[in-house]
Design a protein around this nucleic acid. Structure first.
Ligand SMILES: [Mn+2]
Ligand SMILES: [Mn+2]
Ligand SMILES: [Zn+2]
Ligand SMILES: [Zn+2]
Lengths: 158, 158
DNA sequence: CGTTAAATGGAAATGATTTTCATTTAAAAA
DNA sequence: TTTTTAAATGAAAATCATTTCCATTTAACG
């Protein structure tokens, strides 16, 4: 049985409408996949393949277009982990539970989400944001924090 | 008169030799450019053009190869500011004076270096690094902190 | 100098992302 | 419901930063 999204205003449909975008099967399917794999880091092609298996009319071009749209609305975040393809992740609403940063293996490109010290980090980030905003007259919208190194498995291989 | 690099062991020449690499005119010229423009964020082609104007035998391929080599040695850092091309910056030795993070305009892609709160940031980063290293058996080598937003000029244009 | 593996440049290949354009479709109007 | 219309779409082609290939050159060492 197919899981349906709620239709409350404020759901994803309301958000799209509010920005003047139309509701389409492709867009719903892409959001479904992003939600289902919310702690993974899917590439555009990953998303295309997963959507394609349940809705074979989707095109890769539309995946890219939809992702750009969702990013511009702040509903999706785009990352570069150094393997030559962008990665996408749905941006959780409640910035408490979902917000996390990344640990990236520079060899195998594996990515770990982490939450440790997130309160302290966010506190410092807020302080920095405020100060930098004023000093450089810069309107800060988001931040990126990533650690790079060598993961357990890759270390053992050497 | 041409500015010469020092030959003290510990200089860039010693570092390359220590890693089994040869000293070449191209490599010297690339390091010269990276040093001269140390607070800019040059693309591979930017570097190629600047080197080419003083040493026209250089090829773009060698610029890419040399940058990869320098990155693997930790002498250069590579960044993605979202404009479709990688940016390179020489990595200062003394992590006090030179270490900085970035403020990136998502519209015009302008990048500002900042140092504010760097001590506090580094302190928290060290703490996080230590904890994450243990928890995930991950050997952390470096970190990335960037703020994204809209710069002064782009804000005025709207 | 002569030897040799590393380094190089140019051309071609690669591959993720973007553009183009003819067709389809969501949604508002009638 | 039917009509209307601009937004959305897919397929193919284009783009373009980066990588690969390979024949030639060169740094380093004796
Ligand atoms: Mn994540
Ligand atoms: Mn910088
Ligand atoms: Zn790894
Ligand atoms: Zn700007």
């Amino acid at each position: 049985m197919r899981q349906r999204h709620c239709n409350r205003p404020g759901g994803w449909q309301g958000k799209l409408r509010g920005c003047g975008y139309r509701i389409t099967i492709g867009r719903e399917a892409i959001l479904d996949v992003l939600t289902k794999y919310k702690d993974k880091h899917l590439s555009a092609e990953d998303i295309y393949l997963k959507v394609h298996s349940i809705y074979s009319d989707i095109g890769l071009t539309s995946v890219y277009r939809t992702l750009d749209m969702l990013i511009s609305m702040g509903m999706v975040s785009k990352f570069d982990f150094g393997d030559g393809r962008a990665r996408y992740e749905i941006a959780g609403e409640g910035q408490k539970e979902d917000h996390h940063h990344h640990l990236v293996c520079t060899i195998c490109k594996r990515v770990i989400n982490y939450n440790d010290f997130i309160d302290e980090e966010l506190q410092l980030i807020n302080k920095t944001e405020k100060s930098l905003s004023e000093k450089h007259k810069f309107e800060i919208r988001s931040h990126l924090v990533q650690f790079y190194g060598i993961c357990d498995k890759c270390k053992k291989k050497k």
